[in-house]
Simulated assay, not measured.
Amino acid sequence: MKKITLILFLLINIAFSQEQDYTNVFSNFDSIQKSSLTYHTNRLITVFNYEFVKSKKDSLREVTMTMKLDSIGKFNLIYIEKQNIDLQAFFTTLLEKIPSVEILNSNNKKAVNEFITCKFKLYPNADVSKLNAAIFEKETDTIKAIKELDIYPSFGNFKKNTNKEKSLNEFNKNITKHIQDNFIYPEYAINNNITGKTFVYFVIEKDGSVEKIIVTQAHPVLHFTGIDIISKLPKLKPGMIDGEPVRVSYGLPLTFRFK
């Protein structure tokens, strides 16, 4: 028994000590969706989680950061909030290992010099094998598009309706009201006449919580309003397929303009 335990211990440590090769991770362009900025940022967050577990840090972290996709397709860290400044070197070093990518923007043209702001959690005890499977698209617990669902997510005050169209309309209406109730135009943007349209993407988990908030397009100072609004969403009733809760992606534009 001791011998088996020792072998398992050695195998685990060998796996943790091996440096992951990400050369081919960000080169899968077999669909428009897989060449989008949000898709690759989502996968990049999974890479962050995988490497965070390997680094053997012992506390859960909630991170908000801004990256820039430069003219040669490299992700660069340009901002991380103060409470996680000790992770700056961790992210910078890891992003240097990620190869250049060719990503399409909303107009299906090559994205260059684009900013991405995201908020996500790093779990020190996450399942490494599941994270690895997600990185290389071999996972079974995939994030579903909202159109794939049998029952759409809903707010706690809304009784789920068997009419899918009505149910989705009600969910969209509640999201819109939440945005209107929590929208604050950034003072810096007002003072500097900054306008634009951002795109906000997030994942509704199986328990109804919201994670992996990603904001793209327009000036990065506008991104933080989107992050703040979605962070304030209440716990939702999750989407369902075949009677089981599933992870669901949802995205919407957020426009900043002066009236």
Rank of each mutant, 00 (worst) to 15 (best):
V112I: 15
S167V: 01
L233D: 00
I14S: 07
K34S: 11
I146E: 07
I45G: 07
N163F: 11
F202K: 04
K164S: 14
S36C: 04
I184A: 04
K138R: 02
T23K: 15
I204D: 03
Q33R: 14
N42I: 00
T38E: 13
K130C: 00
H40K: 14
P153W: 06
I116K: 08
K110Y: 05
I45L: 15
I184T: 03
L95P: 01
V53Y: 03
G156W: 02
L8V: 10
F52V: 11
I143M: 07
N193L: 05
D127F: 01
E244I: 14
G156D: 09
G251V: 10
L168Y: 12
N174S: 09
N107D: 13
F256R: 08
I146F: 04
S36W: 06
L233C: 00
A218E: 02
Q33F: 14
Q33H: 14
A15I: 01
K74G: 09
F136V: 05
S17K: 02
I98D: 06
L236H: 03
M240L: 12
D30H: 15
T255Y: 03
N24L: 14
F155L: 04
F136D: 02
F75V: 04
T64M: 14
K34M: 03
H40N: 15
T255C: 05
I229N: 11
E62S: 15
A15F: 10
M1A: 04
I98W: 06
L8Y: 13
E102V: 12
K130M: 05
K232P: 02
S106D: 09
E51D: 04
A133N: 07
